[in-house]
């Protein structure tokens, strides 16, 4: 598969580790990446608040550039904010021919809205890609319990994002499973992490982060996986601060590393910590992955396999019994014959 990548502002800043790990996985999983030429800000922070026109025109310009260069090649947005904004422009243009023409007038270039916009998880939902990744996993994260955290923009609102259920998404779990890790079921996977109040109102934001971390640990997770630079930064960076406050209250620390899902993939596919960007994590993440790789693999047999094994054992037993009986029958008969003679 080939994608036109829209890096956005986070690719080389807060989401650098995401870019690095994703590139590593893409290189090794046959995902080819072009870069959208002359891309611009997706408008996430202020574009749409300024006006609806600006909110559509900013992302549409980049999408039009992608379309001009690569036709209907899907546009890949690793950042969930970019993904949401690009999709909004796309959906608006596809919903109404009038709106599409207005957008064309606003950006001063043709925009057919042909190319789809996908998020970082999407490429791995393609069966071929998933197979390749699975085949390339050389250092599986055996049984590592992972809580997949989606946050808000990836799955909401439903009208814009189509790739998974907005209340109970499951696709990141499927991708994380490829590494040999075990996703856990938990309730806060789409709860708000408060990143919008990261700077303006940290007091409102901290309880939200704390709840997510606590819920993940309560569900038995050893690690959190994310697919959004902002969520990742918020959870990862604030953990120490929250633990400090908890210590002051006499509460146990919430000790859980936060990874991009692509970091888990890269690491399992043999990337070094530096290649997978794990050295950039605030909460140290190397030792947990290293430890997981040394765990013993517990192979769970499917009920069918168990049944087959049982049947095979029973057959073997029956055959042995039969043979013994035959031997026993033959022995006295022989004796009799001899006696008769």
């Amino acid at each position: 598969m080939r994608y036109a990548n829209f890096p956005g502002c986070s690719a080389s800043t807060t989401g650098k580790a995401y870019t690095e790990s994703f590139s590593y996985v893409a290189r090794h999983a046959g995902i080819e990446i072009d870069e959208v030429p002359d891309w611009n800000c997706c408008g996430a922070s202020a574009g749409r608040l300024q006006s609806d026109d600006l909110g559509d025109a900013l992302p549409a310009r980049s999408l039009a550039n992608a379309e001009a260069a690569f036709g209907d090649e899907p546009v890949l947005a690793l950042c969930a904010g970019c993904y949401s904004n690009l999709r909004r422009a796309l959906v608006h243009a596809r919903e109404s021919e009038d709106r599409r023409r207005q957008i064309e007038a606003l950006i001063g270039q043709p925009y057919e809205a042909k190319a789809d916009v996908v998020c970082g998880i999407d490429p791995f939902l393609e069966p071929e890609v998933a197979q390749t990744v699975k085949a390339r996993v050389t250092q599986p994260l055996n049984g590592l319990k992972v809580a997949c955290y989606y946050g808000c923009a990836l799955v909401r609102p439903r009208a814009l994002t189509t790739f998974d259920d907005e209340e109970d998404p499951q696709s990141m779990e499927a991708v994380v499973k490829l590494t040999g890790a075990e996703p856990v079921e938990w309730g806060s996977k789409t709860e708000c992490c408060g990143a919008s109040h990261h700077v303006s109102n940290p007091t409102a934001m901290k309880p939200l982060v704390e709840r997510i971390l606590a819920d993940a640990i309560d569900a038995g997770a050893e690690a959190i996986a994310t697919a959004c630079p902002l969520c990742n930064m918020n959870l990862d960076m604030r953990e120490a601060e929250i633990n400090k406050a908890r210590a002051a209250r006499g509460e146990a620390p919430l000790d859980i590393p936060v990874y991009f899902f692509a970091q888990l993939l890269a690491s399992a596919m043999g990337a070094s910590d530096a290649e997978a960007g794990i050295t950039r994590n605030f909460v140290p993440g190397s030792s947990l992955l290293a430890e997981a790789k040394t765990r013993e693999v517990v192979v769970e047999l499917t009920p069918e396999q168990k049944k087959a094994a049982r049947i095979a054992a029973a057959k073997k037993q029956a055959a042995a019994r039969k043979a013994a009986q035959a031997a026993a029958a033959a022995a006295p008969a022989q004796g009799k014959e001899e006696a008769h003679e």
Binding site: E185, G187, G220
Partner: peptide, 12 residues
Amino acid sequence: SKITRRSDGKLV
């Protein structure tokens, strides 16, 4: 708006 299951089995 949401039901989640805690590790103690309670449905929040």
